[in-house]
Design a protein around this nucleic acid. Structure first.
Lengths: 147, 147
DNA sequence: TATTGTTATACTCTATAACTATA
DNA sequence: TATAGTTATAGAGTATAACAATA
């Protein structure tokens, strides 16, 4: 007998949906951007001189998603592109002041919400949770690799 | 500074994707059905005399998703509908023998994979994990409710 | 007038791959 | 021939609401 509620895929997907939604509201309503856009905005705010490929690796988005997120963020005025004289196929992505301001406005609110979600756990418990999640993740990756 | 990898929405959504995918492979390849279909199949195998509304509550799917999943499962011969003489708007959903066989073939494999994912955790740790996830879920629901 | 379940529609996401320009 | 990034396209999934039958 399968109890859906004791079933990891079911639990995690429900949890991921609610948690994402509860936090994503912040950038959606304040900046009017999507999840992919937000991830790219975080990346370009952390590292100067990122290229699209770097961002893809950094975010687990694929190059197509990154390309489109970049286009949307550029249109919003949150980032701009500079030619890379070394390799003309590549572009260097730079946050604009508006992109920095957006990030600075929103990220503390995001962190606060993230923190709020963890308030019921002590720091030891948080570490334990982290450990459990890592173990489960690596086992599930093994399963996927095997098929 | 936001570290995506230490950020709950990011972590959970990555985890949910990989975990779901690692387990969903079983019913996708063996039965050729989707996640929604699978959830409905579980529901009708557990409870006789379910109606579409019951299933919606039981699975966190909405009535439209349930309606379509029912249609697909019926087409596959996994369930059938009987008129409810009490209320003619409703239908009683019954698993067919083929639907039972499908469930019996696949559910042990699903449980085995679910169990495999948890192998690195003791039963105490599993309970702790469960508790942490519940706490986080209820806080995120609070956030969503507030907006 | 409200409810059960179906159908329609439009919108977003995702996955794949074709394409361009450079290397 | 391979790589960086863009564009096209089709399929799946999602959300909203209109709708028919019954209550």
């Amino acid at each position: 007998m399968i109890d859906l509620h004791a079933f990891l895929p079911y639990q995690f997907s429900q949890l991921a949906d609610v948690v994402s939604h509860s936090v994503a509201t912040v950038y959606e309503t304040r900046l009017g951007i999507s999840r992919d856009d937000w991830r790219v905005l975080v990346a370009v705010n952390q590292d100067r001189h990122m290229r699209a490929t770097d961002i893809a690796q950094h975010t687990t988005l694929d190059k197509m998603q990154v390309s489109r997120a970049i286009a949307r963020l550029e249109k919003k005025g949150f980032l701009s592109r500079k030619a890379d004289m070394g390799d003309k196929r590549q572009q260097i992505l730079v946050v604009t002041p508006a992109g920095q301001a957006a990030y600075k406005e929103v990220s503390p609110l995001m962190l606060a919400r993230n923190d709020y979600l963890l308030q019921d756990l002590t720091s030891t418990e948080r570490e334990a949770l982290q450990r459990y999640l890592d173990l489960i993740l690596s086992r599930s990756q093994q399963l996927v690799a095997r098929g």
